[in-house]
Amino acid sequence: MKNSKLLWRLCVAAAILIIILTFSPLVIAPGKTTPSLFGMPYTLWVSILTTIALVVLTYLGSKVLPDEEEDNQ
């Protein structure tokens, strides 16, 4: 239980960090298009990766967030 809470907090911290990074010049630098990936400009493929990271975190979060509610009833 204690471990679950810690892991959940780590997931939350990671999600907040990803959001901050995405809104920083690291991802939305004005006019930056390189390096490209499969032809996609920099901001697009990096933001696709950060979106995937958030969904992966949602999956991980769903595993560690305690299930104490009606499931146990």
Partner: peptide
């Protein structure tokens, strides 16, 4: 993409 898809990623979390 950030306007909607990234925001949706944050929403599901």
């Amino acid at each position: 993409w950030i306007f909607l898809a990234f925001s949706d990623g944050a929403m599901v979390f």
